[in-house]
Amino acid sequence: MADDEHGAPIPPEGLGERGLRLWTDTVAELDMDPDELVLLEEACRLADELDDMGVVLANSELVSKGSRGQPVANPLLREIRGHRLALSRVLRQLGATRPGEDDVERLTPSQRGRKAAFARHHGARSLAPVREIPRVGDVS
């Protein structure tokens, strides 16, 4: 991906308002490798799709008739839930969100793998602290 005059990666074409905001805020806070930029683009597109589905859902009924006439939830609700989960996972993978409590240790996927392998092979012995990645909004 190309960089702008300030060295920040240029946002992908076609992002909506929310996706563009996620892109610019994230690249401003985190130094990202090319593979992470691919994940970030995916997160931005998921965020935009969520906005689009929200608009459609707002103009739809929450309950419709199923194949036997029974009331069923609008299928878009399930799709939105899936998109939210996918977005959360991608952002967590990027290290751009906090997985839970503020005191929860934040590790990259490779750091988590190393930690899990160490625990499997060495039992309950504690690990040396692993370098945390910066969080969006943290000040250095």
Rank of each mutant, 00 (worst) to 15 (best):
L62H: 13
T24H: 10
V56S: 15
P75N: 04
D33Q: 12
L85C: 06
R106I: 04
D31H: 11
A124P: 10
W23R: 03
A58H: 11
L46Q: 11
P12A: 06
S110K: 08
D4K: 05
D35F: 11
E105R: 12
Q111W: 07
L30H: 04
P75S: 05
K65E: 14
V130D: 14
R131V: 13
P129K: 04
V90P: 01
H121Y: 09
R135M: 11
D33S: 13
P11F: 00
P75F: 05
R68A: 15
M53S: 11
L107P: 02
S60G: 06
K115V: 02
P109D: 03
D48E: 05
H122T: 03
G19H: 06
A119Y: 09
P109V: 05
E17C: 10
G69M: 08
G137M: 13
L62V: 03
R114K: 09
R112P: 12
G54L: 06
A2W: 09
G16E: 03
R18H: 10
S60F: 03
L30T: 02
G113R: 09
L50A: 05
P11W: 00
L91M: 03
A28F: 04
A47H: 02
G7R: 05
D3P: 08
T24S: 08
S64W: 11
R78G: 14
V63W: 08
E36M: 07
M1D: 08
L77F: 05
S140Y: 05
D51N: 15
G95W: 04
L39C: 07
P109W: 01
V72D: 07
V90M: 00
L87V: 00
W23A: 01
G66M: 15
L50V: 03
A128D: 15
V55W: 12
E132Y: 01
L127D: 05
A116C: 02
R84I: 06
G7W: 06
M53P: 07
P129Y: 02
L127Y: 11
Q93D: 15
A117S: 04
G14D: 08
L94H: 02
G123V: 06
G7L: 09
H6Y: 09
R84D: 07
R21P: 01
P9G: 09
E36V: 01
G66K: 10
M1Q: 09
E13I: 06
M53N: 15
D33P: 07
L107W: 05
L37T: 02
V104H: 08
G113I: 08
V136I: 14
E105Q: 10
E49H: 10
S67Q: 10
Q111Y: 14
E29P: 05
L15P: 01
P12E: 04
T26E: 01
G137T: 06
L91R: 00
I80D: 11
R114P: 03
D102K: 12
E13V: 09
E79Y: 13
V63K: 10
